[in-house]
């Protein structure tokens, strides 16, 4: 069963509009480039091997390009790029610290804020640490290049010290948090406040309600999207 073009095209259009309005287009290049392996995989596999598609357009070796497959591939690719761009716009326009402190003011617990914020900040540090571990193991004679099988073997000397070191940090972090009254029952008083106009608030609520309404309408069969 093939879905129509309205869905993917309108989602893509809406995301492009936000890209143009926010003017962060140049910073999104890396998001699009990073999505290429996924997009290429989607295009190739669906175009050449779509189950039960018979409308052949061309034949390359043992594989056949089908019209159905090509349609599905392009729609899925459009959806995936729109998804990547939407996340890209969010990351490019929103500062993590600002977002978390505003969410805390709106009632997000300090535990949730700590888990999310510190996890995001920890990823690049752990990548750095993984690099250091690989260098150290290489200096001890570990082979990290060449055949996939050899690289897979390198996972054990990488993962071991990484997880071990990270777990050791947990103890120190617990002490540090406790020393700073992390489990105190009182709420923290936010000092920074962020501008939030009535129009923006209305737009947020409106968009949220629109999503719910559209989902209910399409699933319930009242709105037939071609």
């Amino acid at each position: 069963m093939i879905r129509g073009w309205t869905g993917p095209v309108s989602v893509f259009g809406a995301v492009l509009l936000t890209v143009v309005i926010t003017g962060v287009g140049r910073r999104l290049v890396s998001f699009v480039v990073a999505s290429l392996p996924l997009v290429i995989s989607i295009l190739l596999i669906n175009t050449f091997i779509y189950p039960d598609a018979t409308d052949a357009l061309a034949t390359v070796g043992p594989f056949t390009v089908t019209g159905t497959g090509l349609t599905v591939a392009l729609q899925a690719a459009l959806r995936v790029i729109a998804f990547a761009l939407a996340i890209g716009v969010f990351v490019a326009t929103t500062d993590l610290d600002d977002l978390l402190s505003d969410l805390e003011r709106r009632g997000l617990g300090r535990r949730a804020e700590f888990v999310i914020g510190s996890a995001i900040r920890m990823v690049p540090r752990m990548v750095e640490r993984a690099g250091e571990i690989v260098e150290a193991q290489r200096a001890r004679g570990l082979d990290t290049e060449g055949r996939p099988w050899r690289r897979a073997r390198g996972l054990v000397p990488l993962a071991g010290p990484m997880i071990g070191g990270a777990l050791n940090d947990v103890e120190e972090r617990t002490m540090a948090l406790e020393a700073r009254a992390f489990s105190a029952p009182a709420r923290r008083t936010p000092i920074r406040r962020f501008p939030d106009s009535a129009a923006q608030r209305a737009a947020r609520w409106g968009l949220g309600l629109l999503i719910v309404a559209l989902t209910v309408a399409t699933v319930g069969g009242w709105l037939n999207v071609p």
Binding site: R111, F114, V115, S118, A119, M122, V123, R125, M126, V127, A130, L155, L158, A159, M162, I163, A166, L167, D169, V170, R173, T174, L177, E178, F182, S183
Partner: peptide, 22 residues
């Protein structure tokens, strides 16, 4: 969700992401 678990969760999340991505 004691403090110790709260300190462990971000570490666990980062391990998931970094190893999984690799």
């Amino acid at each position: 969700f004691g403090t110790r678990v709260i300190a462990l969760m971000p570490v666990a999340i980062a391990v998931n992401i970094v190893l999984g991505y690799t």
